[in-house]
Design a protein around this nucleic acid. Structure first.
Lengths: 212, 212, 212, 212
DNA sequence: TATGAATGAGATTTCATTCAT
DNA sequence: TATGAATGAAATCTCATTCAT
């Protein structure tokens, strides 16, 4: 398992680091959302964060560090919130809840998601690997959920399909952030969740139902 | 309906323009794929295309023009190929074939797709609008296909679901390009098509089958 | 009355701005004098000013800003010096002194004058307007001087002639900077002042003298 | 006496050269007037002249050649027209006529004059010298005129003043082209000629008149 | 710890000039 | 003679990063 990457800071006070990076991330997300990583300058990031360019560089080493901090932060937030609220009872209802939870999360953090998925490709190799791993953790979360269901007999699904199904859910979630423009103006996240979940479960649960 | 955007060239010979832009696009895709739009320099693009920086600028006005040409080119290729081969009989089998066709297209042009979806956000406003419109055309292609099926009674699906389903297919196709790393190393595009199509149709066709 | 145009700087320290721009202007005048505005590069300007190209652009926004700073600076210097030393008693002797003062100024700042009059046409629209206004102020200085004399009865001259006469003096001053090559090598600025002033006053004062 | 500079052409036919250069000069004056020598591109000059960039370079060697041709052309036109119409009787009336003639010329060719005086500084050294010489010829024209008058006793004026007076007239003419903005909107060239001539002659003729 | 002025490598773009057709 | 595509040196301007205060 890969170790968490550490962004070097020349400041010692851990609390201060935490605080400043919080500011930095908030500002960066706003900026990256508006103009993308490459068009946002470090000066602008510092300004948006509320301190000077000099101070910014006390807490990071390169501009890419900012992007990494942003991505890392988002993944951790998502994983924490999801993890903390998924029951693993292995029921279809549990899956429904997990999907709803995840989709709502995306709806609330859509700026962050957009930034992360549009800009993470600009991360340096090592950071990219680390972030990819986070993404895999997220997929694994659903994969395990489905696996439990499969083991418990609630779903009949091959391992191959399982992996794809998990990716499917993760991607459908992103789709809400990325392609909202493609849907009816008055479609709510609730509508979206209902429709996606139904279609998804229909596609997956069917065989079992056929058995009935 | 929006008019096709035109990239100004100071060269008059239309055939030459076509030829040079072909070279340019080929080189640009390769480069953008490797380092992204922002890190690829115009000099590199020219070199990769096989001519001098001065010549490059005889055929475009700004670097963003290159990106636009790339995106426009890809969409047109995809739309042409898809359009030319979709029957509109309104059968589930027709849908299967269309999906397969589209997914194969993506498999063949995955570099192009990746570039387009990762970089198109860097287009200037007007070009972005034009490209978005192309994306909607692609979605509409599937939407119409499904609508024909729905009308013919092959699918029972609301208009709301129809739109989402079409987006779903378009996105699942992109998923093959974007997340291949998440799937088993030895999963083939054929496997992927089979699994996705089955799950998709299960999710959508079911109700009708239930009727049977 | 038009407001003074402001050249934006990303440096905050006002004193530093003043100092650096002083350096910049000195270097620019030297260079523009030698090769003209268009042939002088920003790199050369920076070098001549004694700092790097990056630093140069901390204090201006475009190359044209340099030209504007140069022109603005010269006009202000001239206007200040002239303004501070013109008595407005409305005597012919006062006019003599003013002309001498102005011609000496030009003799001392001929490089600056040459640059300003040869290059100001390259200013952007708004700056050009501002500079033109300065030129009009200079003309107005003499116009008022003459008007006072006319009112006091020292000169008999129509308003129409007054305006022309003021321009005449301004232009004769420039002529010393622009056409020194056309005069005898050993003509001094004193000679020039004497001859020009005599001819000018003869042309203008005569009628009144005739009356005597 | 300096020899006329020759601009090399790779075309042999002298008539064609003449014709093409005529076109070129007309186009160039128009362009230089609008955007100045440096901002006008050779492509634009060619286009304005009515032929291709390739053709342009059949008739000149460098862009500066165009400027030289323009300046040379203007001076020759002016000198020819002036020369052909100056009587040398050595009367004050003759001077009046010469001045009027010259000022009218400038009024008719003010675009050309503006271009010449604003851009000639961009000529290469040798061409600059040649053009300067033309300027001196023009001054000499008036100088001689005045000298004849002085010899004939119509003017009492020293040689030193003579030179300056000739320059004065040449410059006052230019002033009409350069500073028309400074004069009343409804001042005509006739008004200007009258006023300038009167003031000038007053300044110069006075002593003699006093004798009367 | 915080600041922000200084730096210079590097990016995009222009344009005079050439030369094959 | 006429054309215009190709060239690449050179110009302007940006911006991540450093470092003295």
């Amino acid at each position: 398992m890969e170790k968490k990457l550490v962004v070097k800071s020349s400041v010692k006070d851990e609390n201060l680091i935490e605080k400043r990076r919080e500011q930095m991330i908030r500002g960066a997300v706003k900026l990256f959302r508006k103009k993308g990583f490459h068009r946002a300058t470090t000066r602008e990031i510092a300004k948006e964060a509320g301190f000077s360019i000099g101070t910014l560089y006390e807490y990071i080493r390169t501009k890419e560090d900012v992007l990494y901090l942003v991505c890392d932060n988002i993944y951790n937030k998502v994983l924490n919130r999801l993890n903390g609220s998924l029951d693993q009872e292995g029921t279809v209802e549990g899956i429904r809840l997990a999907i709803a939870k995840y989709f709502h999360l995306i709806d609330n953090m859509s700026d962050e998601f957009l930034v992360m998925y549009q800009e993470s490709k600009s991360l340096p190799k090592d950071a990219l690997g680390y972030v990819l791993q986070k993404e895999m953790e997220m997929v694994a979360l659903f994969e395990n959920l489905f696996k439990t269901c499969a083991r418990s007999g609630e779903l009949r699904i091959t391992d191959e399909e399982l992996r794809i199904a998990a990716n499917h859910i993760v991607v459908q979630g992103q789709m809400w952030a990325f392609r909202r423009w493609a849907f009816d103006k008055d479609m709510t996240i609730e509508d979206y969740i209902r429709i996606q979940t139904d279609q998804f479960l229909n596609g997956i649960v069917r065989e079992r139902e056929e058995i009935r």
